[in-house]
Simulated scan of single mutants.
Amino acid sequence: MTERWGWQPTAWLQDGLPTWRWRAAPAGLMTRRQMRAADLAPCGADPVAQVVCRRGRRWALLWDVADLGPKRIPSTAQLAALDRALAARRRCPTCSRDVGYCIPRSLGSCLDCHAPLTAAVHAAA
């Protein structure tokens, strides 16, 4: 720990990674959310440290900013394919209409087709 970030009296090793308490990590390290906000990606780099909060119940991995690269930008064909896939998940196989939400795989159909009597009672109320 001392050669990469200098002397860190508040850090300890946990699962082979230097670990700090919340808001005590040195500058130059980023979490996944911070990477997403900065349009960066790990690009195959492994996490170099972690932060722990809530008495060890919550933790976040940290990456060195120098190891990060730009996030990939999807092509228009990829975005179109994603739109088609999401539209297919919203279409009910029973009534063939777009219900506006993803059909639960456990039911296999929209809520109106799965329980028509319950839906009719709620629609009348």
Rank of each mutant, 00 (worst) to 15 (best):
M1F: 06
M1K: 03
W5R: 09
G6W: 09
W7G: 05
W7P: 10
P9Y: 01
A11N: 04
L13H: 06
D15H: 13
G16I: 08
L17A: 01
T19G: 10
R21S: 09
P26F: 01
P26K: 03
T31Q: 00
T31G: 00
R33A: 13
R36D: 14
A38F: 02
D39V: 00
D39M: 05
A41D: 13
P42H: 09
G44R: 06
A49H: 02
A49E: 02
V52D: 03
R54T: 08
R55M: 11
G56T: 11
G56K: 04
R57S: 04
A60D: 08
A60Y: 14
L62A: 08
L62G: 01
V65G: 05
A66G: 08
A66W: 00
D67E: 13
D67M: 09
L68W: 07
I73R: 15
I73E: 13
T76W: 03
T76S: 15
Q78A: 13
L79G: 02
A80I: 00
A80T: 12
D83K: 15
D83A: 15
A85H: 14
A87E: 12
R90W: 10
R91T: 13
C92I: 04
P93T: 10
C95V: 09
D98V: 14
D98S: 07
V99F: 03
G100D: 07
P104C: 12
S106A: 15
G108I: 06
S109F: 01
S109Y: 00
C110I: 02
C110M: 07
C113T: 13
T118C: 12
V121N: 09
A123E: 13
